[in-house]
Simulated assay, not measured.
Amino acid sequence: MEFRDLRAQYQYYKTEIDSSIQQVINNTQFIEGKEVNDLEEQLSNYVGVKHCITCANGTEAMTLVLRAWGIQAGDAVFVPNFTFFATGEVVSYCGATPIFVDVCWDTFNMDPIKLEQAIVKTIQEGKLKPKVIIPVDLFGLPADYGQIEEIAKNYQLSILEDAAQGFGGQFKGKKACSFGHAATTSFFPAKPLGCYGDGGAIFTNDDALAEVIRSLKIHGKGNDKYDNVRVGVNSRLDTLQAAVLKVKLKAFINHELQDVNEIYKLYNERLAGYVEIPIIPNDYFSSFAQYTIKLKDENERNQLQEYLRQKNIPSMIYYTKPLHRQAAFTYLKLEDLDYPVSINLSQRVLSLPMHPYLKEAEVDLVTEAILQFIQD
């Protein structure tokens, strides 16, 4: 059993993927080929925004936006404390200071109440200038943009949606990657929409921002690549990855999103009442990058993971350590007292195999093992 079975997906679409890759090889347009432009247009149409700009990976996608906004030393950027390191990393990389915000127990996402408290505290301290909020659509579920956008408006902050795990999710019928002033996603292979290497994209309705990002991602180019109007980077999605993603995007839209939500229902039906199962609030739709349960405590979580391993059932812990406990952020001198939910989650979460090609018999195997463990 695979945690996320990329091999099964490839076998299902082998003919189309191989053909798409071969066409790029035949045309030899390996950088900025037609497939890249086609993919960007298809992605922007799907999400419902004017601009999609692909780049080398999801981390650089966020970095490019922050650089285009001029985020620098002295600026405060608000980031959920329970997420992957990259979301806080890009803030520090730009010289700004990440302000970590605890999350909601049920959704794993940034807590809007604690967000506003953190903004007010930062303003009162007067050492940093609040500039940006980076909500994360964790495990496939969009953050609470209803409240977060209102808070951002009240304090005149920009929103950068980190939808690295959230592509395909929805809030009130609006798709992930369409919230805030800009949004980013990742095409890392294990993501809801993944390529066969690294890749990322930026989404925005802001024409001026899109123009600057297109320049920054190719060495700060102006009219052409030998006319450099600013200092940029080299961050492009290669044509082969775009060719793969074009095939995968069709599958993602046609059936994968629906299939993964059927798997979610099967898991919930079998596990409800035995462990804490994922909750999808009203008006939300998740793309289920992960299916994450909560156990009673760290000991039970670790014992269950080992029990599953002995039965050749893979599982993962996302995340064993909140951002404020990462060694790279010790200079911020943050206290555990401010992050009780993040700490508790890191001790109790366990993610189970989850992908559109998971069979019902495999779900039965996983859940029967969990119930056996719980009941013993």
Score class of each variant (00 low, 15 high):
Q303I: 04
P356I: 03
L332R: 13
P278L: 04
R309D: 13
Q303W: 07
I313D: 06
F288R: 07
R301F: 00
G273M: 12
S286G: 04
Q305D: 11
P278K: 07
L295G: 01
S286V: 01
N302H: 14
Y284Q: 10
L304Q: 13
Q310S: 06
T320M: 03
D336V: 05
I280S: 00
L350W: 05
Y319R: 02
A327M: 11
S346Y: 02
L334R: 10
T320V: 03
V349C: 05
V349A: 02
T330M: 10
F329P: 12
Y319D: 03
E300N: 01
N312V: 04
I317K: 10
S342Y: 00
N312M: 07
L345H: 02
Y318E: 08
Y318Q: 01
S346A: 05
A328S: 09
L308G: 02
D338K: 11
D283I: 01
Y318I: 02
S286I: 03
S286P: 11
I317E: 06
M316T: 09
Y284E: 11
T330P: 14
K311H: 13
D338E: 12
T330F: 15
V341D: 02
S342A: 08
A272R: 14
Q305T: 08
V341S: 08
H355A: 00
E335T: 10
F288A: 07
P356A: 10
Q310F: 11
I317N: 05
F285W: 03
E335A: 09
V349L: 07
K296W: 09
P278I: 00
E276W: 06
L295V: 02
E298H: 04
P356E: 12
A328H: 13
F285E: 03
K311F: 10
D297Y: 09
R301H: 08
Q303V: 05
R301P: 00
H355K: 02
L334N: 12
P278V: 03
I317C: 00
K296D: 15
Y318S: 06
G273Y: 09
E300H: 08
L332P: 09
S315P: 06
L352V: 07
A328R: 11
L304A: 05
I317V: 14
E298W: 12
L345I: 01
Y339I: 00
N344S: 14
V275L: 14
Y284W: 15
Q305I: 02
Y291T: 06
M354Y: 12
I343A: 06
P314W: 08
Q305N: 09
Q326A: 08
I280Q: 04
L308D: 01
D297H: 12
Y319N: 03
P314A: 08
K294Q: 12
I280G: 04
Y307R: 04
P340G: 05
